[in-house]
Design a protein around this nucleic acid. Structure first.
Lengths: 202, 202
DNA sequence: CCTCCATGTTTACAGGAGAAACTTATGAGG
DNA sequence: CCTCATAAGTTTCTCCTGTAAACATGGAGG
């Protein structure tokens, strides 16, 4: 992928190479139990090299989480702000995008919301996560302005939506949305219930 | 707590003692990064003793998760099936109970829904988790029977409720329900939104 | 009273985190 | 064009973990 030049001693862009490797391992194993040494090994450097770029293992994990929030925000934005859709459609499209993202990157998604990606320990990470949340706020504001959504405090609706979508995503990637429990199309069914509570025209 | 007799060689009930210690560490650290050796040390036995009671570290974690689901089911049942409440009240009470449980036991709650408590690896754990879910189903059925809740497929409503409550709980213990983001009473506000979508009389 | 086995302990090993000391390529200033 | 300070690698070391295997013990049943 990035193995173009077999670098001698100085790698050139080890930081990104390590991140790449770690993201791949995260995707493969669907967890972040990988060791820093293994990441170094697969990147072709000594086991101490990563410490020149990350204070410790957790700092790498936080960076991965940050990248995840960035990607998620972009994905959701693209989904929600495409033209020719009603507010309701844009909402479900955005929610689906989030859940799909989680489904395609379960390890990463889990990491993003885990305690190991401690947002209080990294303002940069915190900010990025916040920005992802704001994508949702934007849509809610728009929906209230044009009369689609009930005129109640945005914050309450935001909490409900965020919780609902995040909850669905987590349950989905944990394999807990089994048909026997929550039906065939659990996501759209659940989103319908929520939208009924959100929209004016029941 | 259980240190009554300073046992010689044979502990008497090491399994439970280990679980106790582990639960305490889980509560204290709010994570399950504790080592098995440390658990053994604090329980006053050799570092290999735990292996007589748990195949490996993960088996202990799964047992902790199982206990968590048991407690959660009991807590929610008690909250939801107390007398003199409307269906709507019983719903919010139950949801609050779940979220309170998560807030009081963040480490345990996180573990319960983490990949480390792999439900496919332990039928007993899976069953207990399932039973917790059924508490919710019961209430929904009752609500539909008495006409409080809309007569749509239960499974969709169940998914919505489960996701919403679980999502709120996770966000709450991650400190992401900040007033600036989701208002002052995020939980009840969010539950109101959901209930509007659930109930017949908007 | 003896003997067995569940439940302890000791010992051993492979591997990880991270610190410290050492090495090398690079690029900025003379 | 040299040189040398420094960023970015490597080696080596210590302490710790999970887990396996061999050994010890004491309480219950014959």
């Amino acid at each position: 992928m990035r193995e173009t030049k077999d670098r001698s001693y100085h790698h050139g862009d080890l930081r990104h190479a390590l991140i790449d490797t770690a993201l791949n391992m995260l995707a493969t194993d669907q967890n972040w139990t990988f060791t820093l040494r293994e990441v170094a090994r697969r990147t072709g450097v000594s086991h101490a090299a990563p410490y020149k770029h990350f204070r410790d293992r957790e700092e790498l994990l936080r960076e991965l989480a940050r990248i995840g929030f960035d990607q998620l925000a972009e994905t959701m934005t693209r989904a929600m702000f495409s033209n020719g859709l009603t507010i309701r459609e844009r909402f479900t499209t955005g929610a689906q995008a989030c859940i799909d993202f989680a489904f395609r990157n379960p390890g990463l998604y889990r990491l993003m919301f885990s305690a190991d990606a401690d947002k209080t320990a990294d303002p940069h990470l915190h900010d990025t996560a916040m920005r992802t949340f704001h994508v949702l706020l934007q849509l809610l504001e728009e929906g209230q302005r044009d009369g689609s959504f009930r005129p109640v405090p945005i914050s309450g609706q935001a909490g409900a939506c965020w919780a609902q979508v995040h909850g669905l995503a987590m349950l989905a990637i944990s394999g807990q949305l089994l048909e026997e429990k929550v039906g065939k199309e659990p996501v759209s069914a659940a989103l319908d219930v929520l939208l009924n509570g959100l929209c004016c025209n029941t």
